[in-house]
């Protein structure tokens, strides 16, 4: 959220392994999502929870 701290969509600072999800909606849009936040309406979990890196890999390989 600042130039020095990671935000909700950023990979966590060293040492932590926060969990992330990949969400998808009915239009086929994908979204990275932090595990600790409720999944918004109209979106469903398509992958995860897993590490930030792994979720990014899934999202990039489309």
């Amino acid at each position: 959220m600042t130039a020095t701290e990671p935000g909700p969509f950023d990979p966590p600072a060293d040492g932590r392994d926060d969990a992330f999800l990949v969400l998808v909606n009915s239009a086929g849009d994908h979204s990275l999502w932090p595990d600790w936040r409720a999944v918004p309406q109209g979106w469903r979990r398509s992958f995860g929870p897993d590490t930030h890196g792994e979720c990014l890999r899934r999202l990039s390989a489309r």
């Binding site: 849009d29 994908h30 979204s31 918004p40």
Partner: peptide, 21 residues
């Protein structure tokens, strides 16, 4: 051509209509 980047900057909208970004 950047699906990964797109999915991390255009994310799910928790406050809008269902499926909104």
């Amino acid at each position: 051509h950047r699906p990964g980047l797109t999915a991390t900057r255009f994310v799910a909208d928790p406050f809008g209509p269902p499926g909104a970004r």
